[in-house]
Computed example of a mutant assay.
Amino acid sequence: MPARRRRQVSMADVAQLAGVSAQTVSRVSNGYEGVVPETRERVVAAMRELGYRPNAAARALKRGSFHNIGVVMFDLTATGNTSTLAAISESASSHGYTVTLMAPQSRTTASVSGAFDRLSELLVDGIILVMESMPDDAEGASFTLPDVEHLVVVDSALGPDHAVVDTDQAAGTRSAVEHLLALGHATVHHITGPAYSYSAQRREKAWREVLTEAGRRVPEPAHGDWSAGSGYQAALTLLKDPSCTAVFCANDEMSLGLLHAAQDLGRHVPEDLSVVGFDDIPLAADFAPPLTTVHQDFAGMGRACMARLVRMMSTGVAETGQELVPTSLVVRASTAPPRKH
């Protein structure tokens, strides 16, 4: 004989157990003010005891909000992206929002539009787009985002027409390169991130500017793809030059590859070679030696994104312009003055 289906707990059941009206239960479940604290606690206790779950869709229709935001992100393998996603999720939760993630498999204009359409169907209140590069098939400035009422863009070069939040890439890079020059290095070599990345482009541009302003030689950069393996391969080329005594890597993982290559080639860090990374990933302090790096405030990024999105959703007023989240240089044991010969 088939098992009897359990009857769903109703609002009336909660009201009876708590000794209040169904209207009071409704007010508590919808978060309305004006319910006496003792009564609210009694209703919540009854909900927990009975296992009552308010209908989320019905509550959303009443208050005009689904308390759900969408995040569109193309690369879930990059450490910076996953850290940004974690920060956004944590901040969203603190504001009482859930997060729906869209991670398109291809980086095309159609995939961007498709992700936005799908999120619209899922009834999100706003969207955060983590856009590390233009879509592969976009033609520069001709690319435009789908029309979305509440949108914040992270790591973008789309200009002042959107609400953009980004790490202060230039200031972070400047602190790294100036640190190495202040130690006495004649110049600073560079391992870049992938050419398509806005972050990599900004870090390379700032590196060139600092060296040029200081009247130092600007060496030919080596190119990586954010991975430790690419950092290792790039380092094999850089370290053939005996005058290379300092390297700024566009992220920490490539710095790890560089440290590995230096060890294999008999170059001691920091006695023969100083290394600075970017990100300050949790393992950076455990590298051998511990890595000097630019700290990205991913938690601050999440808070800034949600603050702008919540303001737009609550006021109905669109925001534009870029907000930069400050960085800081964390000096550890991978940098030192160059060895005197």
Rank of each mutant, 00 (worst) to 15 (best):
G140H: 10
M312D: 08
L50Y: 03
T82H: 01
M1V: 15
G193W: 02
P219K: 09
A182T: 14
P338Y: 04
T84H: 01
V154Q: 01
E319F: 05
T293H: 02
A288P: 04
G34Q: 06
T84R: 00
V210L: 04
V247N: 03
T24H: 05
R267T: 14
R311H: 13
A141Q: 11
V310Q: 02
M306H: 01
E121D: 14
G300I: 00
D280W: 00
R332I: 09
P289V: 07
A304S: 12
E139V: 15
P242H: 08
L309G: 02
A141P: 10
D168I: 03
A195G: 07
Q8T: 15
Y232A: 13
R208P: 06
A214M: 09
V275W: 00
G215H: 12
E220K: 08
G172R: 00
V14T: 05
E41C: 13
S334P: 06
G316E: 07
A318M: 08
H295P: 05
T98C: 06
M73Y: 02
R208K: 14
Q169W: 03
E178K: 07
V20R: 00
D166P: 03
L17K: 06
A222G: 12
E41W: 06
S21A: 14
H67M: 08
V275C: 10
H295Y: 10
N55G: 12
M134Y: 08
E204M: 10
Q8L: 14
M1D: 15
S255C: 13
S314P: 03
T335D: 09
S243D: 13
V148S: 05
G229N: 10
I191C: 06
G172L: 04
G64L: 07
P54I: 03
R174D: 12
V35L: 06
R174C: 09
D279L: 04
E319Y: 08
V275S: 09
V25T: 08
D161A: 14
A228Y: 05
L119P: 04
A87P: 02
G70A: 07
R203K: 13
L183T: 12
V331R: 11
R217E: 14
A157E: 10
R53N: 11
R339A: 15
L329S: 07
V177Q: 04
A46D: 06
A206F: 01
G64W: 04
G140D: 13
L129C: 09
S156I: 04
Q233R: 10
L259T: 09
L151T: 00
T192F: 01
T79K: 02
A318R: 14
M1F: 13
V14A: 09
R63L: 13
T108F: 03
V310H: 03
V275F: 03
S133E: 07
A157C: 11
T320F: 04
